[in-house]
Simulated scan of single mutants.
Amino acid sequence: MLDTKTILASRTVWANLIGLVALVLDLFGFDVSEIGTGAFEEAAIQFIAAASFIASTVFRILATKQILN
């Protein structure tokens, strides 16, 4: 792993950011009443967060370049 890339070019970083945003929206009680009943949307936000953190782990395993410090 001798090649490098910027932090914004990292799929791992983007997957973690998406998961973090989903968790923060859920934590602060993001109002989803306009899109539906609430229970489904709550589950969807949690699924997005979980899937993004799983994806970030997979992306890190498959990574071939280091992130620049």
Rank of each mutant, 00 (worst) to 15 (best):
F30C: 07
A50K: 13
E42P: 03
L17Q: 10
R11D: 12
L25Y: 04
L25W: 03
I18P: 00
I48G: 02
V13H: 07
Q46E: 08
D3M: 05
A43E: 12
F53D: 00
A50S: 15
S52F: 01
F53G: 02
I67S: 08
L2H: 13
Q46Y: 13
F28T: 15
A51F: 08
M1K: 10
R11G: 11
K65C: 03
I45D: 03
E34Q: 11
L27A: 15
F30T: 01
A22S: 13
L68Y: 03
E41C: 07
A22E: 03
T64W: 08
R11C: 08
L2D: 15
N69F: 08
L17S: 01
D26C: 09
I54Q: 02
A51L: 02
I35K: 07
Q46R: 15
L27W: 14
Q66N: 11
A49Q: 09
I7S: 11
S10G: 06
A9C: 06
A50T: 15
G19H: 09
L23A: 14
I67H: 09
G38V: 13
Q66L: 09
A51W: 01
A44H: 03
A43K: 13
E41F: 06
S56H: 08
L17R: 00
F53R: 00
L8H: 12
F30E: 02
A22N: 08
L20K: 09
G38L: 09
M1Y: 10
G36K: 07
T4P: 03
F28H: 15
A43P: 04
R60C: 05
L17G: 01
T37L: 05
I48K: 01
F59Y: 07
T57Y: 01
I48E: 02
M1N: 10
N69T: 06
A51D: 00
I48A: 03
T64M: 02
L8Q: 12
I18T: 04
T37C: 02
D26K: 11
L27Y: 15
T4I: 12
T4E: 11
A44W: 07
D31I: 08
G38E: 07
M1V: 04
A63K: 11
S52H: 03
V24A: 11
A50P: 11
L62H: 08
L62R: 12
T64N: 10
L68M: 03
I67V: 15
E41D: 11
S33N: 10
G19R: 07
A49M: 04
A22P: 10
V21W: 00
N69E: 10
T4F: 06
A44Y: 05
G29V: 06
I54W: 04
S56P: 07
I18R: 00
T6Y: 14
N16L: 14
T37N: 13
D31C: 04
E41P: 05
L62V: 05
L23N: 15
N16Y: 04
F28L: 15
F47I: 04
L2M: 14
D3H: 10
S52M: 07
L8S: 09
V32A: 03
I61P: 02
A43Y: 06
